[in-house]
Simulated assay, not measured.
Amino acid sequence: MLLVLGIVLILGALFAARWAIWQGFRVDRVIEVGSPGDYGEAFTEATIPAVGGKRLFGWLMSAGPGAPLIVVMHGWGANAESMLPLAVPIRRHGYSVLVIDARSHGRSDQDNFSSMPRFAEDIDSALDWAALLPDIDPHALAVLGHSVGGAAGLLAASGRENLRAVISLSAFDHPETVMRTYLSRAKVPYRPIGWMICRYVERIIGHTFDDIAPVATISRIRCPVLIGHGADDLMVAPAAASAIFARATSPMAELAILDGTGHDEAGCFERISLVLTDFLDRSFKAREAISGGMPAGP
């Protein structure tokens, strides 16, 4: 009888853990209520083909034919509108900007679950779509991502050769670290239960944490990359940015710990826009010099 009861309790605990994990992959969708027009910016709505026959929603703010284009990705549970305080100053500086919603976020199609690798897939879909636009130079593309979107930007960039720059803001350094933090808060011991949960999550997303971790993907990026982080970030410690930067192999990698900046406040976004546009200008001009005078930026 005690053996049967023990088996029932173990199975119940495993079922509860599985339910909790899948709940963690689901996102409370936040629909945009504003648009770039609220900032006085002209824009067109974009419908972008994505993985699995899904479609992504986005806003394209053009700076004119031939202008470099920056694909901008939000963080977990956010949407394209949340990135406008960063995207609009970049557009006004002379860059075209494509701000997108990840699947299951904003106005993009729903999928069965969300994950950082799926954010990266959506960034890839947006880059591929933008490269086919008649007024866009497919060799003048860059990525800017925030939080989970920042980690996803590094993952997407690690598998591409045609990017001119990558900016990752407020990203975590390793998924296992994030999981261990959540498990600790939930009073779940890492050994053996937490470790088993992490391996189950890897199976769901189809990737090992070690392979997709920003501390790993940055070593596979050859273009200029900026790792930015708020010194006052209470959600992801600034030490994560230092850990990522320490693994960079590109000679054009930079680290910026931004004073007076938190994780995702709109006011912070506006203050750091000069740091981002300066980095983009230098990155595109560096590529222009290497390519022997090819037009490369504003």
Rank of each mutant, 00 (worst) to 15 (best):
N112Y: 13
S147D: 08
H139D: 14
E176L: 13
L141P: 01
D101Q: 12
A130Y: 02
P117D: 06
E81A: 11
S108L: 03
A120G: 10
R164N: 09
W76L: 13
F119Q: 05
A102Y: 01
F172G: 00
V71C: 11
R107D: 03
N162K: 07
D135P: 06
A87D: 10
D124Y: 00
I70H: 02
S147E: 08
S115D: 06
F113S: 15
D173G: 08
M73I: 01
G52N: 12
G58N: 02
W129Q: 05
R160Q: 09
P138H: 10
G75W: 02
G75D: 05
F57R: 15
G159P: 01
V71Q: 08
Y95T: 10
L84Q: 08
L141C: 08
H174P: 01
R103V: 09
P117I: 06
H139W: 14
L60W: 15
R164A: 15
L56Q: 09
G159S: 08
N79F: 00
H146G: 02
D122R: 10
N162C: 02
A78W: 01
L84E: 11
M116W: 03
R164P: 01
R164H: 04
V99S: 13
H174G: 06
H139P: 00
F113V: 04
S96P: 06
A102M: 09
D135H: 15
P68W: 09
A126Q: 05
R164G: 15
P65T: 10
S125Q: 01
E81R: 01
L84P: 04
G149F: 06
L60T: 03
S114R: 04
I167N: 04
E176C: 00
D128N: 13
E161K: 05
L69P: 00
H93Q: 09
S168D: 06
V97Y: 04
A126R: 10
Q110N: 10
Y95E: 01
A87N: 06
V178A: 12
L141V: 09
S108T: 12
P85Y: 04
G75F: 09
A130K: 02
